[in-house]
Design a protein around this nucleic acid. Structure first.
Lengths: 329, 329
DNA sequence: ACAGGTACGTGAAACATTTCATCCACACAA
DNA sequence: TTGTGTGGATGAAATGTTTCACGTACCTGT
């Protein structure tokens, strides 16, 4: 017994095992050590209940095996699942995640970055919106879904392609009066491309396409007004709607139901994200983001040793999946 | 300029400001320092882009302002929202969260605890199932929803009361043939109490009550068989179902729909959790858990300095909320 | 038997902080 | 003028690791 009440250190283990400090260190770093020594060290460590102190280790090595993930919240199923996949990808590589929530506040985003820097994380993955985040270039940063500049790697789904895909599908299903709906803040980023792809495709095929942006985060009140203005004699002006997210699609469907307009009977809807909830399949027909690969890619890039020749934008393919809000199944 | 390429340290700041090391330390710890000194230090720090190194600080002080949260995954909306609330409660107090996912594996739970210990977290909040987790008693541990022993504080909803509440409500709505459904692993914990409360109440009021436990995590196949056996001439043997979670309730509803049995027309369903998803309200009528207070309580307890006289079980009240799967609105 | 080489154990220095015993300078009282 | 007290700056020690230059012991070949 070393006697004092605090936790055992390497020094205690060394003393107890009758070896030098450096030898203990080597054992816990998988550096070759004579078998008898290794054994004695492990026994002593076990006896004392020794555990490596990562704070001392990190101080010395400047590697912490921690990565910060910055995300607005976990209410949106897509955010939650993305967080889960990134956390798992990190754990698989022996890293751990420091979770930082911003609630979409640019100031909070900045302070999360500061926190991460003070904590000497080995990298930061950010689902952030602040266009002029101040980053120390000594810490690798990967942006999810928002492209800031060529010096900041960005991992995203093929949003443009997804929009095209949605348009093609709706047209193929016979829709002729098309609408794109998106919701959210003014700082857009990649998400707008979903609408761009949709519009480009509609126009190319010669069908009219309206586009509406809803600014009210909750409640969808602006949509209600819009709906009221576009329903005549119980019939909607549109027969195909592409929503920028599944959540929006679900809200729209609920809203339309109040007018007696049924999905997919009267209008077909395609959402975006493709996260199953409640274990009962997709919430709607949708463009599915490859969450697992997105997460894996973010982690790969942020942990990459060689930071020269990093691609600045990585775009992963999406796919269409039927989920009950289109008439195709 | 200090010259070497690495990050500036307190020593650099001290030199640049022309003050002693200890003075710089005091400035960044809000310990009284002469105004002119303070100013000079802050300017120098700003000039050099200095940031406190939390690893050195943590090594010296043994406080890290980090708390580990151990949870199976973020797929279940309840887990995701709980994680969010705990993370926010921590951030409000100047702490950060290390997120550790277990996918329900007892071994992973244990290794998460080990990881947390090595990382010198100030506390651990665990939504774990392993009944014999090996914990260092030097780190405060709070268990969410599972009671292990009187020495480990447990924070939970009033599951028993919630079960009673569900029974009372269904009976009040005229249901007479009642069923309780739960899903999940054999290691149960507090969750079983939902069923207990339900059964006790049904029995007390003199109505029959069946109870079924589904072991298959995904797919709900066992429930399908059970359903088939209890539907005669398109009519279900039950007119009121209490599900141990909203996710299960949603799956049941979908299953019943395939048999032409509509909710709440033919049978009324009450779930458990009460997490809104897709921003469009509750998924079903449900017993709502007070997630925000649960999170707040966990954090309060795990960070409490005085660890004597801690309650071993804290039980927070739930409430019923109508969400479309009962005929009461 | 001895030189040279190899494998590996040793312990001090370094990492960036906090803390504490000292010390200084100034003010005020006698 | 001198002695005392005080607010506050100082810098060395300590925190638990890793790393590296060094030293020792053993082995091999001639």
């Amino acid at each position: 017994m070393t006697g004092n009440g605090s936790l055992p250190t390497m020094k205690d283990v060394a003393r107890s095992a009758g070896v030098a400090l450096g030898t203990v260190s080597k054992v816990f770093n998988n550096i070759p050590v004579g078998d008898s020594y290794r054994q004695r060290v492990l026994e002593a460590a076990d006896r004392l209940g020794y555990q490596v102190n990562n704070y001392a280790r990190g101080l010395k090595t400047n590697r912490t095996y921690a990565v910060a993930f910055i995300v607005p919240n976990l209410e949106l199923p897509f955010f939650a699942i993305l967080t889960q996949n990134i956390c798992q990808a990190l754990e698989r590589r022996g890293y751990r995640m420091i979770l930082a929530l911003t609630d979409f506040s640019p100031d909070t985003e900045q302070s999360c970055v500061r926190m991460a820097q003070q904590n000497k994380v080995d990298g930061i993955i950010g689902l952030t919106y602040n266009p002029n985040l101040h980053l120390k270039d000594s810490i690798p940063f990967v942006s999810f879904d928002r492209y800031f500049s060529s010096s900041i790697p960005c991992v995203a789904s093929d949003n443009f392609g997804g929009g095209q895909m949605a348009a093609e599908k709706l047209i193929e299903l016979g829709c002729r009066k098309l609408l794109f709906l998106r919701i959210g803040s003014s700082v857009s980023g990649e998400t707008d491309k979903r609408g761009d792809g949709f519009e480009v495709c509609c126009r190319a095929k010669g069908f009219p396409c309206d586009s509406l942006r809803l600014f009210n985060e909750d409640g969808y009140e602006p949509f209600k007004e819009f709906l009221a203005a576009h329903i005549h004699d119980g019939k909607l002006d549109y027969d195909g709607i592409f929503c920028a997210s599944d959540g929006l699609a679900m809200a729209i469907r609920a809203n339309l139901a109040e007018w007696g307009i049924l999905v997919p009977r009267d209008v077909q809807i395609i959402g975006f994200d493709g996260i199953p909830v409640w274990g009962s399949g997709l919430p709607c027909s949708t463009i599915v983001q490859p969450v697992a690969q997105l997460a894996e890619t973010c982690v790969d890039i942020v942990l990459k040793e060689d930071r020269t020749e990093q691609p600045s934008l990585i775009c992963l393919p999406v796919c269409y999946a039927s989920g009950g809000t289109t008439r195709d199944s």
